[in-house]
Design a protein around this nucleic acid. Structure first.
Lengths: 129, 129
DNA sequence: TTTGCTGCAAACAATTTGCAAACCG
DNA sequence: CGGTTTGCAAATTGTTTGCAGCAAA
């Protein structure tokens, strides 16, 4: 656990915004101005493989990262790209168990992803990215 | 509906393999040797916006396309990247309704994505891509 | 001294775009 | 004709990699 890795983890823990790799880079750079984007990518990868953060691949172009490793749902705004957490209305483990019994894959994980329009974009007619 | 667009749609309807854009390009090229990859991308986009096909963003690097537009689950093998359909153990509309009542997003769609190891990769110890 | 990590820059892969010609209505 | 779509090639975007120097064990 290098200093860079530690700080990346800390910064991710501070926010609930599901930042992209580049956003993490910007956040971390305030504390480590000389860190490189490559290092950020490498450490995000290592951290997620150790289960300390979650790598989110929710569609849209960008990969995002989440300091909250508990299993939960996400929703992405198709207008602005913002990603939020959703209340869990049913444990995914339950669905996963039922699917597992019907599939000959060995299931390792599952995620439930919603797409929609966030409150801000609904209000403003949803301009921009 | 141009000739190219028609053929792309037809070819997608023939398979259940969730091909990538490039795989669609290879399929279509057998019938239209002079079609370009750019045209394939453009038409896949148009077709999915008109709800004639489904664009899948299941994680992993590649975007995939599905001629089956009914709402269903998918599973992706983390070893070989193969994508299969799964038996639906609970309608997504039901979960979606429950989430909608708790969220201030306007929900447009949702998808349930599983990750695991496919039977082939399980057997062979799961080499390769 | 070996091992792993960094910053940097170049490489990559998937997708998108600009453009002139071809096509369609 | 006017708008759309095409093939082609070049550009863009997000991410990964090679490498030489550093730091820690």
């Amino acid at each position: 656990m290098t200093c860079q890795r530690q700080i990346i983890l800390e910064e991710l823990g501070k926010v609930t915004s599901h930042p992209t790799a580049d956003e993490v880079y910007q956040m971390v750079r305030r504390r480590l101005p000389r860190i490189s984007l490559g290092t950020v990518y490498r450490n995000l990868e290592v951290l997620s493989q150790h289960g300390l953060i979650q790598k989110l691949e929710l569609g849209g172009t960008l990969r995002r990262f989440d300091g909250n490793v508990d299993s939960h749902y996400h929703i992405r705004c198709i207008h602005c790209g913002r990603v939020d957490d959703l209340p869990v209305v049913q444990p995914l483990d339950e669905i996963r168990g039922r699917v597992q019994s019907q599939s000959d894959y060995r299931i390792l994980s599952c995620c439930l992803v919603f797409e929609g329009v966030c409150p801000d974009c609904s209000r403003h007619g949803g301009s921009s990215n």
